[in-house]
């Protein structure tokens, strides 16, 4: 059941990214380019996504566990720290350099593999570099 839920959620996520045109890096960069011909569409993607998922999170506060019986995995960290802000800053630079954040990278894989495949391989390499090398240093 868990696998079925995950697949259904993934399909919805991919469809949503495509309909919102976030799988198009030109559209994303047109939103990030405040000094150019600015396309505000992506702000409305955030409004729609936050609005709907806020309902889900609110409902879950009245539930003991998720529908499949798994406990809710509330994120453990609650206080902002330098790692959070430093990581977010680096991520934003990479997003601005490419026009892809991680979700759209996957959404574009079968549509524009010439870009999405090298993007995803380098992104995963960066993730492994952090998880396996940098995060381990004392």
């Amino acid at each position: 059941m868990k696998n079925l839920i995950a697949l259904a959620a993934g399909l919805l996520f991919g469809a949503g990214l495509y309909v919102a045109m976030m799988a198009d890096p030109n559209k994303v960069l047109a939103f990030l380019d405040l000094a150019g011909a600015w396309d505000p569409s992506l702000a409305l993607v955030m409004v729609g996504a936050i609005g709907v998922s806020a309902i889900g999170f609110a409902v879950s506060k009245r539930m003991q566990a998720s529908i499949s019986g798994q406990a809710f995995g509330w994120p453990k960290l609650t206080r902002p720290d330098l790692k959070l802000l430093g990581g977010a800053a680096l991520f934003g630079i990479g997003w601005g350099m490419t026009g892809y954040c991680p979700g759209p990278g996957f959404a574009a894989l079968a549509i524009n593999p010439a870009e999405a495949l090298p993007y995803l391989l380098a992104m995963i390499a960066g993730m492994v570099i952090w998880d396996r090398l940098l995060a381990r240093k004392p």
């Binding site: 868990k2 839920i5 996520f13 949503g16 919102a20 569409s41 992506l42 993607v45 809710f72 995995g73």
Partner: peptide
């Protein structure tokens, strides 16, 4: 399209959270 696509993304996050208690964080 932006609002509709966003709503689908929100629905996906809701399915994953209410269905199995996991945050839909791609990274």
């Amino acid at each position: 399209l932006a609002l509709a696509g966003g709503a689908l993304i929100g629905l996906s996050a809701t399915v994953l959270w209410l269905g199995m208690g996991r945050v839909a964080g791609i990274s």
